[in-house]
Design a protein around this nucleic acid. Structure first.
Lengths: 256, 256
DNA sequence: GAATACACCGAACGGTGTACGGTGTTTCTT
DNA sequence: AAGAAACACCGTACACCGTTCGGTGTATTC
């Protein structure tokens, strides 16, 4: 799954910013780019990030695999288009209710997006997609901290911190959410097989983990879906509050 | 690259916790598990996460591809072993110098590991590896906040927040670091091709981005490696301080 | 010495992303 | 009106992937 995006950057940029070029001669295109991207997103949602195959996508669209390449230079570029399209579907953070509500909303929206499209976590780690929607979103995020007296570099630092935290913490949430999904067809096979083996090996060692597990703050075995997911969501909110509290402190300090 | 780890969990657990079983009959094994894992890590470092192929690994080890499967059930399990082995090579966080130095050291060590093995960011997102070294490290991290009067659930929340932030922010650092690496062979091809196209499209829109760019806090084009990397590292430290400051506030509040 | 358990490997299966050449359709040019 | 050009579409093929299978030879055990 190394998609360095070698193929000419100009075409990718044009696709991201200007859409597909309209051909002036020859037969009409049977599909349009938006439909392809949406179908690809749906396919990826259904069957995982790298499980998205050009062949399956072509079949879902009713065309031959090779025909896809008349719309899109390759899979790497298609993934970039998918990322930017999803960014465009997200609501932009609003500064109306103050910086804290704005950043909170930004993080909540990002979390919801990662939960809806878990494969984004594996795609977006490699390199930022410089598409119009992604940049618009970034711009709106930076605007949230405008006018509070923070230095420009600190504005960027705070927004980046929220986004970094969100990405990392969203991984945990998605993991908690997906664990039983992958195994639901076979009665929690994954955990059912590992849990006894694990608690057997952990006996004696790991005093902290077992202590916290008994305090109800942690569980490494004996998991059920809603419990784990709720805990992951609680932790997400807890950590987000940590970050936001500190930003508040910086703002208060800058007000002097 | 969907590796659900279907193959029997018992064998994977045994490999993680007890090492490879020693055969009692037949010819001696020509390799040992540790060498295979190390070679796989080296291969992944060199050529990316999914670019690690069992065939190339076998060739690097001087055996046939099929022979790998006498040591390891499959690629998914091998990746788990790689993750745990790397966790074992990291220094454990020390509580000697107080919680803040301890958490800072934890994040710094994680960041260094992600920079040394960037593919971890794409592998570890899918599911936690329950190996001895990973768990030991987790246990030591939780111990850092022991004895400061925090509720058990908040201890977990704080440590998780640091780890989540680290993972997310490490992505940005690795991205800044890798961008020119991928293209060094062809004169910054990636950026050189995109930068002009990008600033052309950005003209006019994105007031915040361009303002911040002019303030020197941000740069979307006109990048050079050391500049970007240094800025990414600064941002990493800035956000980490945000998280740690808030943890300090919670500890102070709990002291009453 | 025979039986057994095992490491190793060549070949193959079903999958992937993508390149190429050909065919038929539409539009522009003359 | 007729030809040329540009284009969408697709069958096929290539190189690669992870993994399985059957066979072969070796070391230990009985």
């Amino acid at each position: 799954m190394e998609y360095p995006g070698r193929g000419d950057a100009a075409r990718t940029m044009a696709l991201l910013w200007d859409g597909a070029p309209v051909p002036r001669r020859g037969p009409r295109q049977r599909l349009d780019l938006a439909r392809i991207i949406d179908a690809a997103i749906a396919e990826a949602d259904r069957s995982g990030p790298a499980a998205l195959s050009m062949r399956a996508l072509a079949q879902a669209l009713g065309i031959g695999p090779a025909s896809l390449y008349t719309y899109v230079p390759g899979k790497a570029e298609l993934l970039e288009l998918m990322v930017d399209r999803i960014a465009g579907a997200q609501p932009l953070p609003a500064a109306d209710a103050g910086w804290r509500a704005g950043l909170h909303g930004l993080a909540a929206s990002d979390l919801a997006t990662f939960r809806a499209h878990p494969w984004l976590l594996q795609v977006a780690t490699s390199r930022t997609v410089f598409g119009p929607n992604v940049l618009t979103r970034h711009d709106a995020a930076l605007a949230l901290l405008d006018g509070y007296g923070l230095a420009a570099i600190d504005v960027v630092g705070c927004v980046t911190a929220v986004e970094s935290y969100t990405r990392g913490a969203a991984s945990a949430v998605v993991e908690a959410e997906q664990a039983p999904v992958l195994t639901e067809s076979s009665d929690d096979e994954w955990w059912a097989q590992r849990a006894p083996l694990l608690s057997e090996r952990m006996a004696g060692r790991f005093p902290r983990l077992t202590a916290l597990e008994q305090a109800g703050a942690f569980a490494v075995s004996d998991l059920t879906l809603p419990y784990t997911l709720q805990r992951a969501l609680d932790r997400f909110a807890f950590g987000l509050d940590l970050v936001l509290d500190s930003i508040g402190a910086r703002i208060a300090a800058a007000r002097d």
